[in-house]
């Protein structure tokens, strides 16, 4: 569970950055960037508590 949450979190973090990179390259719209950034933000904050605290305790 912890590993899964960690993988999803890092994917969400990458997903937060990727839309802006695509936008810089001219591959998407600003509206899509904003939507994807919000989705990935929600995923990051939902999944990160499952592993970050535990990592600290370890």
């Amino acid at each position: 569970m912890r590993t899964l949450a960690q993988v999803v979190s890092w994917l969400a973090l990458a997903g937060t950055l990727a839309p802006s990179l695509f936008y810089l390259a001219g591959g998407t719209t600003l509206a899509a960037v904003k939507t994807w950034m919000l989705v990935c933000t929600v995923v990051w904050f939902v999944t990160v508590p499952f592993w970050m605290d535990r990592a600290e305790k370890d």
Binding site: L13, T16, L17, Y23, L24, M37, T41, F45, P49
Partner: peptide, 19 residues
């Protein structure tokens, strides 16, 4: 929790601004 995400969002600000 927010620290790595905030850094990424700041980078995104710059990339979007540049475009």
């Amino acid at each position: 929790y927010a620290a790595p995400w905030m850094t990424i969002v700041f980078i995104a600000f710059g990339l979007v601004g540049l475009r």
